[in-house]
Design a protein around this nucleic acid. Structure first.
Lengths: 349, 349
DNA sequence: TTGAAAGCGGTACCAT
DNA sequence: ATGGTACCGCTTTCAA
């Protein structure tokens, strides 16, 4: 059933039927009622492609997810983020076009999206330090919002980010306040922008307390159990081992804990662990971590916010780039027991 | 730059230009060369929407992911599956439209997708036992492939699945062969079709060995650490505790291990654990599991296969429903130590 | 308040 | 081998 058929049945013009269905004010209420009824009866649904062609808007937003060929993990936080964004799109009648793209081909994917008009805007995921995609998208004229930020980009652009620097500043300060002086940082991949911000927050906290950051106590890598294990193991074997860790993901923390245990140390007594993770849903507030502090933010909400930001931009409600920094939530305690004593227990040597 | 403009520049008709660009044989090679060159020079890209309207194909595939409102977890295997499917789509010039949809609205989403012609086919994710979506999609006439199966559906339909029954049959038999008689099953949510198949495989292995399956040794739930912990804990506190567990996810297994340890038992000595997981990439072959057997299959490959299956169906290369069962891969050993002795160590009581 | 008709940017049939 | 033209299904001026 298409518009022409429906209008013929009703004995009205396509114009009127279209207007009635799209809520134009000049249609008589009685006519509108008839049209709506007929649309339901005959199960009429406007064809998306035709509408898109006529209006020039595709009513779809692109999400481009970099899938690294080296790092086999597709970050699950994308899933939550997108799920939040999806809600916003559904409410606004937009579709979501997903592009998983391996490292090299990214530019082309964006160009293609813009050139072929398959989407009205894009959300950029996983920005790297000094990400060149931002300049490219600005030039393409395709509206976009970055999930995260790209340090070093000279242009203005729209983004939504969690305050990673602040979260890690707080997590580190938290440990320092308990008396820790040697604190290891198990961080993400160094080229990712969020990892550099986290490191900055960590460093700031140390420096503020008069502690000189020590390169051996900072590890970068993919967020896996193995990375947590290997990094912690190495740090703990050092002449001056850390008494605490700030860990950038729950999964990593599991590895850290294993390393600690293998050395005959006890988590929460000999070594304290503070975890940051964008999403702890798998662990229901860190069930598996006997001693922990979780700094958490709602990824789903971030997705919804970013999507709405982009829809606003597309609607042209304003031209200036929009920025939004979400603060992370700090939770202290363990769901499996009493709140841990985070003070360094004794000096080992 | 659109087709009309390009053809005017070239002094050719739109028809010829279109044919040249789309590889029709009747175009003179010299003409084709000129056209291609001009297309590059003027950065011409055909508009997707217009093409879709003209051809009647949207060149997009829908993936509908059920996002349960109760269970806050979005299964990360979707991510890998979709990433594999994305490769297939990219190669075939298709887009991927993603719909994350909460329980209630599913029907409407499929109807909408079909009615508005936004996609040429869909992949159905997370089928439940006797899933009504299959009947609905058949009636809608929208080509679809199910990732998994729906027991109880009377119709023929296309699907791609991992042989869950067989994987759990093997995992269970494996433990039985080592002498275990009381084996706990930590399974997924009961209404999910894959969970019932897994349970069937587990039961078959037991029955074949003359062991009567015991309801207290079967736990269903969301695949979280908490579920693994709580279920294992309860089973181990029973008068007749299990000497081994078959666990349906790595995350669950972490909880199982915690439960075992809390009771002063030792994994690999007092209690054996066999894990099945669709994707172990987070753990790099189960780093964190000192004793394990992983039955693993490549989710990404499954996604690619399912996508190609659907594209075949759409291309009409055949009309009969296609089915494909992928066998899981069995790995025995631990990356963190020697292959474990899986025999039950001693009788506790 | 309603309708006629000109697009939107391609594809594909029918001529030549 | 190339061109003319009628669509595809909807939106949107302009006219009545």
């Amino acid at each position: 059933m298409n518009l022409r058929e429906l209008s013929e049945i009703l004995g009205l013009s396509q114009t009127t039927v279209s207007r009635a269905l799209n809520g134009y004010p000049e249609v008589a209420e009685e006519t509108r009622r008839r049209v709506r009824e007929a649309a339901t009866t005959y199960n009429y649904h406007p064809n998306n492609r035709a509408r898109s062609l006529a209006t020039g808007r595709s009513m779809s937003i692109g999400h481009v997810i970099p899938v690294s060929t080296q790092h086999e993990i597709v970050n699950p936080i994308f899933t939550d983020f997108i799920s939040g964004a999806g809600e916003a799109y559904a409410a606004a009648g937009y579709d979501l076009t997903l592009k998983m793209v391996s490292d090299g081909d990214e530019d082309e994917v964006y160009r293609d999206l813009a050139n072929r008009g398959s989407v009205d805007g894009v959300i950029v995921h996983g920005p790297r330090v000094d990400d060149r995609r931002i300049a490219m998208l600005s030039e393409l004229g395709l509206p976009f919002v970055v999930h995260g930020r790209a340090t070093g980009s000279t242009r203005e652009y729209s983004w939504l980010d969690v305050n990673n620097r602040r979260a890690f500043y707080r997590a580190t300060s938290f440990l320092i306040d308990f008396g820790h002086r040697r604190i290891g940082l198990i961080n993400g991949i160094e080229t990712m922008d969020f990892a550099t911000r986290r490191r900055t927050g960590y460093r700031e906290a140390l420096e503020e307390a008069g502690i000189v950051p020590c390169p051996e106590l900072i590890a970068h890598g993919e967020m896996t159990e193995r990375h947590g294990y290997a990094s912690a193991r190495q740090m703990l074997n050092d002449a001056m081992p850390p008494t605490a860790f700030v860990v950038a993901s729950v999964i990593c923390a599991i590895g850290v804990r294993r390393a600690v245990q293998e050395l005959g140390l006890i988590v929460g007594r000999d070594v304290s662990i503070v975890i940051y993770d964008d999403d702890l849903s798998y662990f229901k507030s860190g069930d598996d971590i006997p001693v922990f502090t979780a700094v958490r933010s709602s990824v789903r909400e971030a997705g919804r916010n970013a999507a709405n930001m982009l829809l606003d931009i597309i609607a042209g409600t304003g031209d200036a780039p929009r920025q939004r920094l979400m603060e992370a939530e700090l939770t202290v305690g363990s769901s499996t027991g009493p709140a841990p004593d985070l003070a360094p227990h004794r000096q080992r040597g």
